[in-house]
Structure formats: C-alpha cells, structure tokens
Simulated scan of single mutants.
Amino acid sequence: MSELIFEPEAAGMHTPVAPVDATHGILLYLEGVTVSFDGFKAIDNLSLYIGDGELRCIIGPNGAGKTTMMDIITGKTKPDAGRVFFGQTIDLLKLDEPAIARIGIGRKFQKPTVIEPLTVLENLELAMSGAKRLRGLMTTRMSGEERDRISAVLDQVGLNEQAQRLAGVLAHGQKQWLEIGMLLMQEPRLLLVDEPVAGMTPAEMERTAELLKSLAGNHSVVVVEHDMGFVRSIADQVTVLHQGRVLAEGRLDELQVDPLVIEVYLGGEDAHH
C-alpha cells in the first residue's frame, strides 16, 4: 500500500473555520446571479434564499439550471454577475471549493462516491479526518470523542449493523446513506443533495425521506429531485427553476395547480411519479 500523505497542520481539524452569522434566519443568499456558457444563460438573474435549518426542494425541467446553481454555491463555477453569501458575512465568491467545504457546505452528488474496498466505519473515519490528511487510517486509534461522533452518525443514517461491512457490498440505498453520513462527519451547516432517490426501492425512498427530514433543524438541506412523490413526502417549501431563474415558490400542493408550473414542468412525465 502506498504511503499515506496528510497535512500535519490541519490534522484533526474538522470544524468550520469561521462562524456563520445566520442571525436574520437566512443561511444562504443568492442575489441576481447570472452565468453564461458560450452565450447561453444557464443561470439568469437568479435570486434564492434558504432559511437556517430549512429543508428545501428544488425542482424543474432538465436544463433549468439546478446543477449549475449547486456548482456556484460550492465554488465549482463562478458567476458572471450577482452575490452569493453564506450567512451575513461570508462571501462565497471569494472562496475556492476546498475553503467552501471547510466552512460548512457539503454536497452529495447523484452517484455515490464511497470508497468500496473500505468498511463503512473506515469511510466515516476517512471523511472525518479529511481526504488529504489521512492520519494512518488503519493504525491510528480514534479518540473517545471521534468514536462517539462516528457512532452517532452511524445511528443517524441507520448503518450501525453494517459498520464492519465493506462499502462495496452495500445495497444501493445504503451506499447513498453512507455518503450522507460521510458528509455529516464534516459537520456541514448546509447540505446540497442531488437526486438522492434515483434507483431506490420504495422502502429505501421512505428511509431516505426520514433521514433528510431528521437533518433539518440542525442543518439546512437543499434537495434537487425529480420524483414528485418523494418531494411531497419531505418538503414544506419547493422552488421551481425554469431557464435559470425562479419560476415559482411555495408548497407543492399550491404549485401543482399553478398554470405556469403545470405548463413548463408538472404537465410532463414527472407529474406521474
């Protein structure tokens, strides 16, 4: 096995590097955000506000700008115009991707990125210590506090009984929960979750709904999802994106009778889920 490399000065650092000021009740601000790719406006004067501790679902047709929006929040893409703030004081446009992750923004992509040859427990320990600062993963003894945190996350994502199993042999839904657990080890204030129930069984979807709802309050959770049944089961507030801007916002039952929303989105195949 090749030698593990880590950053000594950062070893063990898993807490956000700056306090997040959400005293106004809003954790994430996007204001007047625009980004173009080869002349096409993927995001067009988008303004969006996510409350502290809120669970928000983002829906919209393909090409509505959902992925680009998450790329902007996490620093992968820089907009041409607009403001993006985390709390009152942290300007996300001045930070790169690693810095944004460190201050408490975690992103879960659609395809799980667990490390399959490692156990569930080892995946969580790796996520806690940071991928670039592996503290001799197989040999270092965990502190009691670290052990307690891992135990709490295992319990939260429902993988206690799978702790010693290799991640590669988990069911699809369990891999998704493990990845959410890996994000939780980094103590994010905001979680961005992309299509979490794609390919899941109904029982896995139900468990995922319970998990995401349990995270709200301690975390703000933004879920991009196509499955309307799942959205209905978890979201109080839904935002509809269309052509890079907010088309409508509100409760799903209200949006489902909005003529404009029906025309551009819910009238399509997604309405039948």
Rank of each mutant, 00 (worst) to 15 (best):
260 L>F: 02
136 G>Q: 13
97 E>V: 13
254 E>G: 06
27 L>Q: 14
265 Y>C: 12
11 A>T: 09
250 G>W: 05
216 A>H: 02
122 E>R: 05
27 L>D: 13
265 Y>I: 11
213 K>F: 05
259 P>V: 03
251 R>L: 02
267 G>N: 13
132 K>I: 11
8 P>A: 10
112 P>Y: 00
203 A>D: 13
86 F>K: 12
169 V>M: 08
235 A>Q: 04
58 I>V: 04
2 S>P: 15
217 G>S: 14
154 L>F: 01
64 A>R: 14
44 D>L: 07
73 I>F: 04
266 L>Q: 12
166 L>C: 02
17 V>M: 14
193 V>T: 01
260 L>A: 08
11 A>H: 15
142 M>H: 01
232 R>S: 08
80 D>H: 15
157 V>H: 06
163 A>R: 15
236 D>M: 03
138 M>N: 11
196 P>G: 05
159 L>M: 07
98 P>A: 04
268 G>L: 08
114 V>Y: 08
121 L>I: 06
140 T>R: 00
130 G>T: 10
242 H>W: 07
250 G>I: 00
192 L>R: 14
113 T>P: 11
212 L>A: 02
227 D>A: 09
140 T>Y: 03
108 K>C: 00
165 R>F: 11
218 N>W: 05
198 A>K: 04
197 V>T: 04
136 G>D: 14
269 E>C: 11
25 G>A: 01
237 Q>Y: 03
270 D>V: 15
268 G>V: 06
261 V>C: 03
219 H>P: 03
71 D>K: 13
228 M>D: 00
100 I>D: 03
266 L>K: 12
232 R>M: 12
123 N>D: 06
7 E>Q: 10
217 G>C: 10
198 A>Y: 01
2 S>I: 06
211 L>M: 10
228 M>C: 01
39 G>M: 01
154 L>N: 05
223 V>R: 05
182 M>D: 02
171 A>G: 15
39 G>K: 06
61 P>Q: 10
83 R>Y: 13
249 E>L: 06
237 Q>V: 06
189 R>G: 08
246 V>L: 03
194 D>C: 06
246 V>K: 04
36 S>H: 10
109 F>R: 10
13 M>R: 15
61 P>L: 07
20 V>W: 02
35 V>P: 08
77 T>N: 09
196 P>H: 05
65 G>C: 08
49 Y>K: 14
135 R>V: 09
35 V>G: 09
57 C>Y: 10
119 T>G: 03
88 Q>A: 14
133 R>V: 11
36 S>N: 07
105 I>M: 03
134 L>P: 11
261 V>M: 03
143 S>K: 00
272 H>I: 15
34 T>Y: 08
57 C>N: 11
155 D>P: 02
263 E>G: 12
146 E>A: 06
104 G>R: 07
186 Q>W: 03
179 E>A: 03
113 T>Y: 09
125 E>H: 02
271 A>V: 14
195 E>W: 09
97 E>A: 14
6 F>E: 13
196 P>M: 04
26 I>C: 02
52 D>S: 13
112 P>G: 00
215 L>R: 06
203 A>L: 12
198 A>V: 02
47 S>G: 07
139 T>D: 04
247 L>P: 08
190 L>G: 00
66 K>P: 06
205 M>N: 07
172 H>K: 09
